[in-house]
């Protein structure tokens, strides 16, 4: 029987792991992969201590820090279900089962798909969800970034360094990214922002050739070589199957003082919880708080 199982190896899970290890809880951290919101981020410039770092580099830095401690880390194991037994929990993965006194859910969120015609067909043939992975292939070409939030504008800025032209499509009447990013995008001559734009379909033959969209004037089409979809994320809570209370967006409801979920001894932290803002620094803080709460629970402290 473990003291604590942390599910997820993003900023919240790693922070929870560091705090749990320092409190000498017998802890297991399960991480399915390294392709969460952090791993897929192009550039991070708002996490203290790092003026500018890629998401993957920050992931590696966090993991290096965690591995300094005596903590059992099992990567590439996917959690299938969690069961509540008499006074402990059983975690079933695609490899084996674990018993634990407490759980912290840090399963994060995945990139949202538009769910449109041909979106899947052109994945890897003009459509991508990862600017950092696939951007450079569009050197001197025209690309579209769908999404005017932080991820969208960060991607557009990276792409503007080597592409001929970048169009940013925002569905609402204004960009929703941080002001500093909006200002920077405004200074780039090869980025054009289009608001009130809704993508309708992707067209082409072997590869994506044009995007059909509507704006305030009706239906239009834009010829493009590539399209990067950056429209936010959906919480990874599907496997919970009613185990803890979720809000209408599928995020885990927590007590903001302890980050305990609707189940005693089960905590949640990071992008998977019902907080409006999703930030690495918030995830790290929430992971620490959830871990300290789990420590108190496991040790029977008030």
């Amino acid at each position: 029987m473990r003291d604590l199982v942390i599910i997820g190896g993003g900023p919240a899970g790693i922070s929870a792991g560091i705090y749990a290890a320092r409190k000498q809880l017998d802890t297991l951290l399960l991480s399915e992969d390294f392709t969460g919101q952090l791993g897929l981020s192009s550039l991070i410039e708002n996490y203290p201590g790092f003026k500018s770092i890629s998401g993957l580099e920050l992931t590696k830095t966090f993991l290096d820090h965690l591995k300094e401690y005596d903590i059992d880390i099992r990567s590439f194991e996917k959690v299938i279900s969690i069961k509540e037994l008499k006074d402990f929990y059983k975690i079933v993965t695609d490899e084996r089962e674990y018993e634990t006194k407490a759980v912290i859910l840090c399963t994060g969120a995945n990139p949202k798909r538009l769910g449109l015609k041909n979106e899947k067909k052109y994945l890897g043939r003009g459509i991508s969800y990862c600017v950092t992975c696939d951007g450079i292939k569009y050197k001197d070409k025209t690309v579209v970034v769908v999404g005017g939030g932080n991820a969208g504008l960060e991607g557009a800025l990276e792409l503007s360094n080597y592409t001929k032209r970048v169009y940013v499509f925002e569905i609402t009447d204004r960009l929703t990214a941080d002001e500093v990013l909006i200002e920077r995008v405004g200074k780039e001559k090869n980025i054009e922002v289009l608001v009130n734009v809704e993508v309708k379909s992707f067209e082409g033959e072997d590869r994506l050739k044009e995007i059909i969209y509507t704006d305030t004037k009706g239906e239009r089409e834009l010829l493009t070589d590539g399209c990067f979809i950056q429209i936010g994320c959906v919480p990874n809570t599907g496997f919970l199957n009613g185990f803890v209370k979720l809000n209408s967006r599928g995020e885990i409801v927590v007590d903001p003082k302890t980050f305990q979920t609707s189940k005693v001894g089960v905590y949640a932290a990071g992008d998977v919880v019902d907080f409006n803002e999703k930030q690495i620094s918030l995830s790290v803080g929430q992971g620490a708080l959830a871990s300290l709460s789990a420590f108190r629970y496991v040790r029977g402290l008030e």
């Binding site: 992969d33 390294f34 392709t35 969460g36 791993g39 897929l40 192009s42 890629s54 998401g55 993957l56 580099e57 992931t59 590696k60 990567s75 590439f76 990862c130 950092t132 992975c133 696939d134 450079i136």
Partner: peptide
């Protein structure tokens, strides 16, 4: 692979493990 590609890092990590 490409540099800074999280999926590539995951695949390489799995093989190395």
């Amino acid at each position: 692979t490409s540099p800074d590609c999280a999926y590539c890092y995951t695949v390489k990590g799995f093989l190395e493990d």
